Amino acid sequence: MKINSTVLLTLILLTLMLGAGSVSAFWGFTLGSSALKGVTTPDGRPTTKFTSAKSSNSQPGTLALLKEEEILKIVKARIEGKTKAAKSEKLEEDDEETNNSKQKPEEKPQEIAEEKPQQGFPINAENKGVTLSVQSARYSGGDLLLKVKMQNKGADSVRFLYSFLDVTDDKGRTLSASTEGLPAELPANGPAFSGTVSIPTALLDDVQKVSLALTDYPAQQLKLEVLNIPVAK
């Protein structure tokens, strides 16, 4: 009887152990399954990867690459648009300028008043077709300005050196003077040339008249003398 009771107890313990193990295994499987929900095995097939890549590119918000032809078309359209805009602005500006010019009255050219001859002038000297003419005598800026003209109607050109110009007053005194605008050479049958002979006013306190004498250089074959030029203030 003791043996039978021991065997029975052993069988009961084995049964309990098997039941507990089965319950533990089932409970563990249930917890693992719930934990792995939503987890999928990665697909290693190449075709699947390409398909998934295309589908992801088609989603909104992703970057779409344009073809070279489309880019060139877009750039060309923008350039043409800017060119047209610039042309239209230029045409508008031209129209405004045209309208403004039409609105403004035509300006008449101002008539240049001719200088009236000074009384007693001109005073001329001529030798061998070369003329020296004093057109006027006026005071300005501390100097007496003698406006002169020279012309050569002869067949040969004539040269002058104006440092040899002699200027004397009515008392025979030599006066210092400077020239401006007179040519160093008068061409044959040439035009008239204008210039100025300047004499400091300080030398003319008691002077009523002055005279000019000029010879050609270096030949000194002709002499031009303009005498008794009135310079009274």
Rank of each mutant, 00 (worst) to 15 (best):
N228F: 03
L203G: 06
L212V: 12
V207H: 06
D216W: 00
L212A: 01
E185H: 04
K223R: 15
V226W: 05
E185A: 09
A232F: 08
L186A: 03
A213P: 04
L186G: 00
A219M: 13
V210Y: 00
Q208W: 02
L222R: 08
S211Y: 05
A202Q: 15
K223S: 12
T215F: 03
L227M: 08
L203P: 00
I199F: 07
P230R: 01
N189Q: 14
L186K: 01
Q221M: 13
Y217I: 05
A232M: 10
I199T: 04
T201Y: 03
S198T: 06
V226A: 06
T196S: 12
L227I: 07
S198E: 09
K223Q: 13
V226K: 00
T215S: 15
L222H: 08
V207A: 13
L222A: 03
T215Q: 14
P230A: 01
N189F: 12
A232S: 12
V210S: 04
A192P: 09
D205H: 07
G195A: 09
S211N: 13
A232Y: 11
N228I: 07
D205E: 15
V231C: 04
V197D: 00
E225A: 13
L214S: 02
T201K: 12
G190S: 08
V197T: 05
Y217C: 08
Q221R: 11
Q208P: 01
Q221H: 11
N228M: 09
N189Y: 10
V197W: 00
L227S: 14
F193A: 10
Q221S: 13
G195L: 10
D205Q: 13
Y217K: 09
F193G: 04
V210G: 03
S194H: 11
T201W: 00
P230D: 03
V210W: 02
N189V: 08
A219H: 12
G190W: 03
V226F: 05
Y217D: 14
P200Y: 06
L212T: 09
A219P: 05
L186E: 00
G190E: 04
K223C: 05
V210P: 05
A188P: 11
L224A: 01
P200C: 08
E185S: 13
P218V: 03
P230E: 06
P230S: 04
V207S: 09
G190A: 01
S211T: 12
V207E: 11
P218L: 06
L222V: 07
I229P: 04
Y217A: 12
G195R: 12
L227Y: 08
L227Q: 13
E225V: 14
F193S: 10
L186P: 07
I199Q: 01
D205G: 02
T196R: 05
L224V: 03
A232I: 08
L204K: 02
T196V: 15
A202M: 09
L227G: 09
N228D: 15
A192R: 09
E225Y: 08
Q221W: 11
L186D: 00
T196K: 11
E185M: 12
V226R: 02
G195C: 10
A213M: 11
V210I: 11
A213T: 13
S198N: 14
P218Y: 02
D216N: 15
F193R: 05
L222N: 04
A188Q: 15
Q221I: 12
G195S: 10
T215H: 07
T215L: 06
